[in-house]
Design a protein around this nucleic acid. Structure first.
Ligand SMILES: [Zn+2]
Ligand SMILES: [Zn+2]
Ligand SMILES: [Zn+2]
Ligand SMILES: [Zn+2]
Lengths: 140, 140
DNA sequence: TATAAACCCTGTAGCAACTATAGGGTCAAG
DNA sequence: CTTGACCCTATAGTTGCTACAGGGTTTATA
């Protein structure tokens, strides 16, 4: 049960075939050997590696992050500081995104709550988006 | 103080010049008139419109959403239901993004807390990303 | 055995929303 | 009259895929 086609590998890892070929093209997944008919033949090593990549992507790591993680993970005897640092930095990025989105959510909620329907001309959504009332004092 | 160059408009709205030209190209911002030397000349109407667009982008509305908002906002006498619906849907999208990111944050935090440093071979970050332990019982 | 479905291949273009560069022309100040 | 700041167009790059187009191969079945 070691060798498999690209379709099988995709099914096992919930990855589209095009995505697997894309990972190969950008050098994230190593090129497998080919059959006489030029079909890719993957091994369990590929399966494990792609599993790792997909899980990291699910957690939001960028492909560059994953490259770094894979490079570092190859040295089992080294200290794991660098790996933990990548994860910590990614956590920080994620926290910043959450904070920003929560602020947007608040603004959207406030706006929607304040608009009780009516004509477009008085719609609070439009008011909230319009530049004039914000940042400007009622001039002179 | 009505007419201005693209650079001035960019400064007033915290928008890069290239972005303004991009908005024009995709038909979001109407083409301004030109000087004899082919320079764009913007009016206060453009300033207001671009302000609206930028504020909507800050709140995470897509450009397609903004197109719809602008189209609807042009009919001041109509009811604002459609506008509010776009905003409500955008709020929902934002909430889903937050929920997803908060789940990722939890996984990243748990992982990082469990790794107290050591060798890469035992790093909990790597373990958390590896496919084997997850989703599979300890086979037979 | 024929043939059709299901799979595989390469290469290219598209998505969102910009950003950056190349290779020019124009305008105001000194 | 030259320097520097500004403007112009057109094109390519960014991120992480996804979707063709236009083929070849393998497998199942009638
Ligand atoms: Zn990251
Ligand atoms: Zn409203
Ligand atoms: Zn939206
Ligand atoms: Zn670690």
């Amino acid at each position: 049960m070691g060798n498999m086609t690209i379709g099988r590998l995709g099914r096992e890892t919930s990855t589209k075939v095009e995505t697997i070929r894309y990972y190969e093209k950008i050098g994230l997944l190593p090129e497998p050997r080919r059959t006489a008919a030029n079909y890719r033949v993957y091994t369990d090593a590929h399966l494990n590696l792609l599993g790792f990549i997909r899980r990291a992507r699910e957690l939001g790591f960028s492909i560059d992050d994953i490259r770094d993680l894979l490079r570092l993970a190859a040295h089992g005897e080294a200290p794991c500081d660098d790996i933990d640092r990548i994860a910590a930095q990614h956590l920080e990025t994620t926290e910043k995104k959450i904070a920003l989105l929560m602020q947007l959510r608040r603004e959207l909620r406030d706006t929607l709550e304040s608009c009780k329907g009516g004509r477009v001309a008085e719609c609070k959504v439009i008011v909230a988006l319009s530049p004039e009332p914000r940042g400007g004092q009622t001039g002179a």
